[in-house]
Simulated assay, not measured.
Amino acid sequence: MATPKLSVILSTYNQPEWLEKVLWGYEYQTEADFELIIADDGSSEETQRVINHFQNQSQLKIVHVWHEDNGFQKTKILNKAIKASTTDYLLFSDGDCIPRKDFVEKHLLNRAFGYFLSGGYFKLPMHISEMITEDDIRHERCFDVEWLKKHGLKSSFKNNKLTAQGAKEKFLNWITPTEATWNGHNASGWKEDIVKVNGFDERMQYGGEDREMGERLFNLGIKAKQLRYTAICVHLDHARGYVKPEMLKKNAAIRKTTKETKSVYTSFGIRKS
């Protein structure tokens, strides 16, 4: 069997209802030649049932990488997922971000040696997040600004993310003041580069843990390409009960060291020193 064109690595933790919607998004991609690796940070059996359902009925190759729940360990499960991947190009997103049907295709079209790709997300309010059905995903209603406005979405410049195409899309990617960084919900890069910097730093919990790996990629000489208005996913709303001030403080200190020492490698990543 031929190796797929890329691996999509999706992080999740006990959000089976959101994960199901996201998996429908990957079912309806214009580019289907990819493997889907679910990096599961210790979810319960309900999430396992959702994944089993898709594994049984989907044409996609879906791999479930899981470890026991021991607090916020996203970096550890992502490193396990990187090791489980079989392709040379990795696209990272979250189990609460529904991809537009051209999401995988756009990442493939824009990949380039010496670069990683940096996309964003479009935040949906809770009431719209809850009402989206498989049919809304299949027919792309959840990416249609007019449909979203009918259901209470407010007018905003950010709505351009869902409507920009062609010259407008390129122009907005060029002028956006948002820096192109490694964003865990929408970023892709060459596996070789990610392995060179040793993946994610497993000392880190919530707060900049994705960006820190991107900062090591920058230190390695890899540049970032802005795809904020090109590779589109919508973010389903949820509470963040797992965020603790001490996590943020610890992560900020690690990122500060990475920047000051221009570090390209972590000893706390895929390979342990």
Rank of each mutant, 00 (worst) to 15 (best):
R49Y: 11
L172W: 14
T86G: 00
K76P: 00
L220Y: 14
R211C: 05
D94F: 00
K83P: 00
E202A: 01
A167F: 07
G71D: 05
G152F: 10
K256N: 14
A253L: 13
N183C: 02
R141G: 00
G114L: 08
L23D: 07
Q205V: 01
I38L: 15
F268N: 12
D193W: 10
D96Q: 10
Q57Y: 12
P245V: 01
L90N: 10
V63R: 07
Q15F: 07
R138P: 04
E35R: 09
Y28H: 13
L36C: 12
R271L: 12
G207S: 08
S188M: 05
K61W: 01
L19G: 06
R255D: 04
G214F: 11
G166R: 02
S11Y: 00
G71W: 06
K272W: 08
L148S: 08
V234A: 13
T75I: 07
A187K: 03
T257N: 11
A32K: 15
A187C: 15
I232N: 03
F54C: 10
I232F: 07
F171D: 05
S43W: 07
I137S: 09
V63W: 00
Y229P: 03
D94Q: 14
N110S: 12
N173T: 03
K149H: 14
T3R: 15
F113E: 15
N14C: 08
T3L: 13
F92S: 07
N110C: 11
R49C: 03
Y265E: 06
L124E: 08
I98V: 14
C97R: 02
M1E: 15
L91A: 14
D237W: 06
L124N: 01
I232R: 05
R216E: 09
